[in-house]
Design a protein around this nucleic acid. Sequence first.
RNA 1: GCCCCCGUAGCUCAGCCGGACAGAGCAUCUGCCUUCUAAGCAGAAUGUCGCAGGUUCGAGCCCUGCCGGGGGUACCA
Length: 571
Amino acid sequence: MWIEPRMSSFKKEVVSLLSETTEVPPEEIASRLEYPPDGSFGDLAFPCHLLSKRLKKPPQAIASELAERLSPRASIDRIAATGPYLNFFADPAILATEVVSSIISQREDFGFSDEGRGKTIVIDFSSPNIAKPFGVGHLRTTVLGNGLYHIFSKLGYKLVRVNHLGDWGTQFGKLITAFKLWGDEARLEKDPIGELFDLYVEFHRRAETDSSLEEKAREEFRKLEKGETETSEFWRRFKDLSLQDFDRIYRLLGIEFDSYAGESFYNPYIEKTIEALKSAGLTRVSEDALIVDLEKYGMPPCLLKKRDEATLYATRDIAAAIYRYETYKFHKNLYVVGSAQRLHFQQVFKVLELMGYPWSKDCHHIELGWIKFEKGAMSTRKGNIVFLEDVLSKSVELVKSIIEEKNPTLEDQDRVARQVGVGAVVFWDLSARRNKDINFSWEEALNFEGQTGPYLQYTHARLASVMRRYGEPLPPHPDLSLLSGAQEQKVIKLLSRFPEHLQRAAFDYEPYHLVSYLLELASAFNSFYQSQRILCEDLNLRSARVSLAEATRTVLKEGLRLLGMESPESM
RNA sequence: GCCCCCGUAGCUCAGCCGGACAGAGCAUCUGCCUUCUAAGCAGAAUGUCGCAGGUUCGAGCCCUGCCGGGGGUACCA
C-alpha cells in the first residue's frame, strides 16, 4: 500500500482529529482520505463506508454524527457531511499563507525530501545499439529514464546513470561480415551511421536467401570474443563513430550519463560469472547449450552459452548486475527497458536469487510500451525507422516558423526554438503511462496546443513575463490571506500537492503522474490569469498575487526540469 | 497451445486503495486580443467503460469465460 509520507498541516490536522475520535490508526486514515471530485464538496473527504461494518450503522448516519461531534480547529475551517462522506474544508487564509510562503522561501527545493539519503539507485536506460541509428523508438527509455533520474535525485537519492550500450553480440558479426563484403570506406567516413545502417539492412535482405551469411556472421563474432585484432579494429571503429552520433542527440536532449559500461565492458567478467554459476550447481548442458534450468519456477531455461560457445545477453546481464552491486552497493537497481524483455529480466533476477544474492529483490524492470507506427512496428532489420534526430529537428523548425509568425521580435529565437521543439517531443513521449504502446504520428508528436509541452512552457513564459513587468523584488511580507478567490484557491491547493505527486511518480516509477499534475496546475493558473489581473491597482492584493505567481512559476519550472524540459523566459 | 499487457467519447489518453453524477486534450461549433504573452480562456456537443456472467451495500477498477489488438514463449537484443 502506498502511504503518503508528507502532508500539509491541514491534512495532518484532519488525520489526527479523525484518528482521535474514531480510534482508527492515523496511517489508515491518511491512506483512506480522498480528494473530492469537485471543490464544492470540500478539500478532503473521509468515506464513512469504512466504519459502517464495525459500527453497524449506515455510512450516512456515521457521517452526519461525526459532523455533529467534531469541531473545526486550527487550519480546518468547516466540517460537513454529504451523504456517506465527511468533508473537511481548509481555512483558505491559513492554507494560502502556508503554501505560498513556503514555496517562496524554499524556491526550487520545495518538494525536496531526504528519504533517499545515503541510498544509491543504479538506473539503466537509453542503452542504444551501437552501429544502428537512434530511432524514435529509443526515445521512451531515454526520456523516461532521465525523468526518473531527476525525480529520485530530488528525493535525496544518489543516482548512477548507466548507458548499457548494446556494443556486443552477433549483430557485430553481421556488420563486420557485411562491411567486408560490400562496405564503402569513403562513405563510412562521411556518413558512418548511414553506411552502417544500410549494411545492416542489406545483410538481412540477402540473408533471407543466402543462409551462409548467418554462419559467416557467427564466425566473425566468435573472432571478436576471442579478441582477434582485425575484427576488434572494425568493432572499435564502428563503436567510436556511433558514440559520436549518439552524443549529439544526448546533448540536444540535455541528458548525461555516469557510466557507459556497455555489454562489451562485462566481457572480462563473463567467465568468472559462469564459473560461479557452475560451482553453485545451477548449470547444465542441454541441446549443446549451457543453461540454468528454471522449469521449477515456471520459466523456460536461461541460456548462458550458445551451441557455438558464444555468450548471450542474459549472461552479460547477470555479470553486469553483480558488477553493479559490488561497485555501487545499490539500494535499487533499475532497468528502464521495453516490456518485451519481461521474461528475460524475470529469468536474470531469478538466477541472481538462486546464486544467493539477497539484493536480487532490489532489481526491478521498469517496463515500457512500444512506440509504434500506424503501418506496423518499426524494425531496424527491415530498415523502416524514423530517426529521432529527424523528429527533433523537424520539431525545432516548426517552432521556428511559429515564432516568426507570433513573436517575430523575440530574442534568441534559435535557442528558444530548440527548447520548445525538443520539449514538445519529450513531453509527447511522456504523455501516456509508460506501459502503454503509443503510435508515432508526426501530427501528434509535433502538436503545440492543448495538453502539450509548449502549453506548459508557454504558461511559464507568461508567468515570467508578468514578473518582468512587476519589475521589483518580491514583496517581503505580503498578506497572503487576501488570496481567497476561487481560482486563486484552486491554484494554491494544487501547489500544495506538488510534493505528493512527486512522491507518487517515484513510487510507481511513473513520471506521467507529474505530467498530469503540471497540466492541471497550468490550467488552473491560466484560468485565474484570464479572469483576474495580477498587477492590479490594490497594492496589497497585487503583492499577494505576485507572490502566488512566483510560487506557481517556481513549481512549474521545477516540474519541467524534472521531466527533462527547459523553461524559456519568453517564447 | 501456454503466459503477460492492452481494450473508456470520432481520435489520443486520464480515472489514485472498489466509493460522490465516468474526466481531459485534439477535431467540430459559439464567444473573448486598444489592459499582465490568444502556443491562451470561457462555453456547446459527444459514452452499451470490448461482450457475457459472478463477488459486493456499491464494479471502469476484483473473479471466471469469450472476442479483438500487441508482446513473450532456448541459442537476436
